[in-house]
Amino acid sequence: MDSAAARARASAGGHSQTAPAYTEFHPRWYRPRISTYWWLGRWPYVKFILRELSSVAVAWTVAFTLFQLWSLSQGEVAYSTFTRRASSPIMIALNVIAFGFLLLHSITWFNLAPKAMAVRVSGKRLPAILISGPQFLGWFAISAIVLWIYMVRT
């Protein structure tokens, strides 16, 4: 065994370092390498990566909000600087993109929730729509309430 392995190693130089030559009775497997861009080219994988990248939009939104809160705490002048900056085309463009990702996050999150929760009522697994449905409704309700508070109170 040892000598055979040694022979395999010795003859490896002839080809390349990753592929030693075949030695009788010793299987030589080919191990495909995974491309760095594995997630490109197949739509399910692209969708997956976009979903995962929505976390950047989440972080961005929090950062944007923290900046807004900081401006708010620094007084009216600082806050007007914030609103001016937020109105710049670049910021608007960034926020539109981020908003798109946030929607992607919300939709995928609610749709995947039923997978993780196998809720059973009298022996039958609750259909997915009964788990994701209320979450979508909750999302719409909260959004509507926040909008309403904003419109009424400010």
Binding site: P44, Y45, F48, E52, L112, K115, A116, M117, A118
Partner: peptide, 26 residues
């Protein structure tokens, strides 16, 4: 597992491994 969900989509026997893993995580 990062819940790509492809395992469940290709499963010829509808085993839903992705669901199983998420349930287990919970």
């Amino acid at each position: 597992c990062t819940f790509v969900g492809e395992c469940t989509r290709v499963c010829p026997k509808h085993v839903d491994p992705a669901g199983a893993i998420q349930q287990y995580k919970l």
